[in-house]
Amino acid sequence: MSNVMMDIKNLHAKIGAKEILKGVNLQLEEGKVHAIMGPNGAGKSTLSKAITGHYDVEVTEGEILYKGQNIVDWEPEDRALEGIFLSFQNPVEIPGVNNAYFLRTAVNARRKHLGLPELNAAEFLREMKKLVEELGMKPEMINRSLNEGFSGGEKKRNEILQMMMLQPDLIILDEIDSGLDIDALRAVSEGINKMKDGKRSFLVITHYSRILDYIEPDYIHVLKEGRIIKTAGAELVAELEEKGYGAIEEA
């Protein structure tokens, strides 16, 4: 096994009084694409929230080791600055926050954290416009309020734009394919595939296998009732397609 970027050990987490994650063990390797699949309510999104420090989720037991450090008590922004990125299943709309201003603030916060010089407005906009074009987004989205009035596809493209600008080390894609038509899915997937550099890790959370036709996974993990019950190679997708989650039993 190559270097482990994230090592999740016996993770228990609850939302409110309900325990959702019941001892998740998962290792994410550097440079690999891991896909987590599972039925509705298995805890897939809760896992992504636990990794990013979402306010809804309380970790009650276990560790999330990222680059060797337990990040369970870290603030969300510290996790992001260290390179963890979550592409949200349903990105919130923030009226009044200019898309470009928001993203420039985020990019420069990360650059500052990495000891890199901050981008001035011209440098930033040049880069942003290039990526906007690559992702097939409308140029006026640069000036619009963050996600406000965006269609489902536009929101997902905007998430990918943020990912490409922020250059994170661990990318979590939570149901990135939901609500995307075929063209949008292709554009988003191309953006994700461009980010593969042999070092960056991906955690693709999905309910359906469609996205995995575009982003080839190295590992498939099945999450069911709050635990990873099976880990295998990409061939597991076909088995899941054929038999469904019900047929998969804990190893």
Partner: peptide, 17 residues
């Protein structure tokens, strides 16, 4: 949370909102 998940400090995020 959305702003903070992009690396923007809590106070800065509050200011933006």
């Amino acid at each position: 949370f959305y702003l903070r998940s992009r690396g923007i400090a809590k106070e800065e995020a509050r200011k933006m909102l």
